[in-house]
Amino acid sequence: MAERFTKSMARNIYLGGSAFFVLLFLALTFDTQVRAMPERDNRDQLTEEVVRGKHIWENNNCVGCHSIMGEGAYFAPELANVFDRRGAGDTEVFKSYMRAWMNAMPTNIPGRRQMPNFNLSDEDIDALSAFLEWTSKIDDNNWPPNIEG
């Protein structure tokens, strides 16, 4: 680099640049969280059951195989839209599908990817279903592109 460009100029770009973008990021975060998200994340539907479902989701490390809104592992299907894919967008259909599915695991088909049986009660499975249904209704800019996730 040319000698005219001194170390203190470089330092000022570093300090000024990072301070500016940290502040900008904080301002954008404020706007996103305070103004925009309440309109988009469907939080008025965030029931006790949904919260319980999130804990069941976490306590069984579901994200270790599945993705949810595209984040997680890529070993098993995307679940943010499973309510639409397997429940056809109907709460009761989805709940009965989930109960049947969770209790049928593992399939034990040789050579196939296996999902453990997590020994969840019917109430737990219903809570998990409620969580996934709630998640499917977050406004995520119309992702995924199709029903397969």
Binding site: A36, M37, R40, G70, N141, P144
Partner: peptide, 10 residues
């Protein structure tokens, strides 16, 4: 932030 809920300006 594209597909996890935040607004479109992201």
């Amino acid at each position: 932030f594209f597909w996890i809920g935040p607004p479109e300006y992201w």
